[in-house]
């Protein structure tokens, strides 16, 4: 296990360097190079001396390899620098936005799990019957509806027409206050969850179906255990294992997974920070958010693997 972990950490480091390299290369492929980048930041009235100052202040006039090694060094020392546009250290911005997005995604994932697991089981037990068709169709419709459309429809119906919920997410910066304003969380959390539910329930359905065909389930049935007991105890327990690991794999979504929900519900989190950085060519912030996304991906899949090993005794990592 220790050897395995060491290997995984090593792999993670390689992946993060790779991510830096991709981001760096793409950024430098930009037509017009660093001068164009400077102009996007400084505005069209930027004159050559202003551009020269910007390039030297940000080390963009150094040789390309030097720039890359400086970047990798900064990333691994968590020195993410200052945003070109937002007048703040990248680390501060990430620390401000990350909890907001984690909260939104956490709540919607929770809602997803609460709805999707029973739904998935139901879909197996009532496979190809009208009630399965109806529920599956509903979950697919939510899945198929573009997020921006769903969000806007929900706002029109529940906020503008019926005045049941506010049209925007809580506007506070602190997690405690955001949670306190629970009514404002309802629509964004549901919008985000609606998309996940179909995915999770489909997964649950498939994994439950598989579990029901396993030998031990058939054995349990043969031993005369009630169908209900077999379904809910033996098969369910095993079917849940992959679901738990799936949760680990939703981690990368903290960067851009909630982008559209954030923008529709006026909730500036990681997604919008990332999007604006990309649109505005704010390289330090961009690399900061991309690295956070990469770390989340790496940590998420590591967690998924470990959980899998812990929960399923048949798996051994060597």
């Amino acid at each position: 296990m220790i050897g395995y972990l060491i290997r995984r950490v090593f792999q993670a480091i390689i992946v993060i360097i790779g991510v830096c390299a991709i981001t760096f290369i793409l950024y430098h492929l930009f037509p017009g190079g660093a001068t164009s980048e400077a102009r996007i930041i400084l505005g069209p009235r930027a004159t050559p001396p202003q551009i020269a100052l910007f390039l030297s202040q940000n080390g963009l006039n150094k040789p390309i390899w030097t720039q890359f090694f400086i970047l990798v060094g900064h990333v691994f020392t968590f020195n993410l620098g200052y945003s070109y546009k937002l007048n703040e250290p990248v680390a501060t911005i990430v620390l401000q936005k990350l909890p907001k997005t984690v909260l939104l995604l956490g709540l919607s994932t929770l809602l997803t799990v609460i709805i999707a697991i029973p739904l998935g089981i139901f879909q197996v037990l009532r496979r190809n019957r009208p009630s399965d068709y109806a529920l599956t169709t509903l979950s697919f419709i939510f899945y198929a509806t573009p997020t921006f459309f769903l969000g806007i429809v929900l706002i029109q119906v529940f906020a503008i027409h019926w005045h049941l919920f506010p049209p925007e997410a809580p506007q506070s910066a602190s997690v405690g206050q955001i949670l306190g304003d629970w009514r404002a969380l309802v629509l964004p959390v549901f919008t985000l969850a609606a998309v996940y539910i179909a995915g999770f329930s489909r997964y649950m359905r498939s994994s439950m179906m598989e579990a029901l065909t396993e030998d031990y389930v058939r054995t349990a049935r043969a031993k005369g255990l009630s169908t209900r007991r077999v379904n809910y105890v033996h098969a369910l327990r095993n079917a849940l294992i992959p679901i738990i690991t799936l949760l680990g794999l939703t981690l990368p979504a903290i960067v851009s997974g909630a982008l559209i929900t954030e923008s529709v519900f006026n909730y500036p989190g990681m997604g919008l920070a990332f999007f604006n950085a990309a649109i505005n060519n704010d390289f330090p912030l961009l690399i900061g958010t991309v690295v956070v996304a990469a770390m989340a991906t790496v940590v998420g899949s590591l967690l998924a693997d470990i959980l899998y090993a812990v929960l399923d005794p048949r798996i051994r990592y060597v």
Partner: peptide, 17 residues
């Protein structure tokens, strides 16, 4: 000075009251 992420978000709030 109230911040908004998008014009749509601003309009929704305007419409809401």
């Amino acid at each position: 000075l109230a911040p908004f992420t998008t014009d749509t978000a601003e309009f929704n709030v305007l419409e809401n009251g």
